[in-house]
């Protein structure tokens, strides 16, 4: 039998995790597309119908003497004024599902119809591959949903363009569209450094959650307390530097660049401790 390397074992585990969630991921993408495109098309058609009715009334002389005028609007105006909530809901659903799945990706191994964790932990490869595969899977699901949303925006702009006649629409570019929706602006930071920082913090948060879950799995009842305390300590370590050191206070002891260095160091320490602690728990504390 051909011996597989550690790298191959990790890829197999990652592929296994992705295949388990793939239809859920497709479902989330479908929900996003259906709700966003559906609400956009419905709103545009309603506006067109309203305009048609106005013109009909005017043609039959039932209303004004002058031809009804329309104020043209852009995709950005439409999203900002009428579709904020419709575009937010599917994103919130996606965030909630991924958030729940961060826990479910571990607990399903214990609480499924077979206690699959026994088979996973008995694999000849290092147990830490399981941790890394689950972590990478969560990151990949998140980036896939983010990428899908990025693709949807120009598609929605194109639909806006082809549904509305020229005299009813104003131009708007992709960047303006991203910035108009507060959730898009948060999920899709245009500055590369902000993107790396935001998703870096997200990835560290997933590591902290995984370690908290492993604490609970290792120590059961009291492990819940350990997990919550661990997560709270990590959150404090990551949030306090910016909160306490006062970036904008001229009297602050540290300069802004130094506060950033403290914050990045705190994030790096939390990431390394979470990885190391998770490694130790998985190898030493969780037994089958």
């Amino acid at each position: 039998m051909k011996k597989i390397t550690g790298w191959q074992a990790f890829v197999r585990l990652l592929n296994f995790e992705i295949r388990r969630f793939r239809w859920m991921l497709v479902g989330l993408m479908a929900i996003t597309a259906v709700i966003q495109i559906g609400s956009l098309v419905t709103t545009l058609l309603t506006k067109l119908e309203s305009r048609r009715q106005d013109r009909l009334s005017w043609n039959h002389g039932a209303q004004q003497d002058t031809e009804p005028q329309w104020t043209p609007f852009s995709f950005v105006d439409l999203v900002e004024q009428e579709l904020l909530m419709e575009f937010t809901w599917p994103i919130l659903i996606g965030v909630a599902v991924i958030g729940i799945y961060i826990f479910f990706i571990w607990y399903r191994e214990w609480f499924g119809k077979d206690t699959f964790i026994y088979r996973l932990l008995m694999l000849p490869q290092p147990r830490f591959h399981i941790y890394m595969a689950k972590g990478c899977a969560i990151v990949l699901f998140t980036f896939s949903l983010v990428a899908f949303q990025i693709v949807l925006i120009p598609l929605e702009q194109w639909l806006f363009h082809i549904i509305l006649p020229e005299e009813m629409r104003l131009p708007s570019d992709f960047s303006a569209a991203v910035r108009v929706h507060p959730v898009w602006e948060m999920l899709l930071p245009e500055a590369a450094d902000q993107f790396v920082f935001s998703y870096g913090v997200g990835i560290i948060s997933v590591m902290v959650a995984f370690t908290a879950i492993l604490l609970e799995r290792s120590f059961r009842g009291i492990g819940i307390v350990y997990g919550i305390v661990y997560a709270a300590v990590c959150a404090a370590a990551m949030l306090l530097p910016v909160g306490v050191l006062e970036m904008q206070n001229p009297d602050a002891w540290l300069y802004p660049g130094e506060i950033l260095a403290v914050e990045l160091t705190a994030c790096a320490v939390v990431a390394l401790v979470s990885l190391g602690f998770g490694y130790w728990l998985l190898n030493r504390k969780i037994t089958v």
Partner: peptide
């Protein structure tokens, strides 16, 4: 699925 999602995410982002 894994290759597809990785490529899709990387290229788009």
């Amino acid at each position: 699925w894994t290759i597809g999602l990785c490529l899709f995410s990387a290229v788009v982002i």
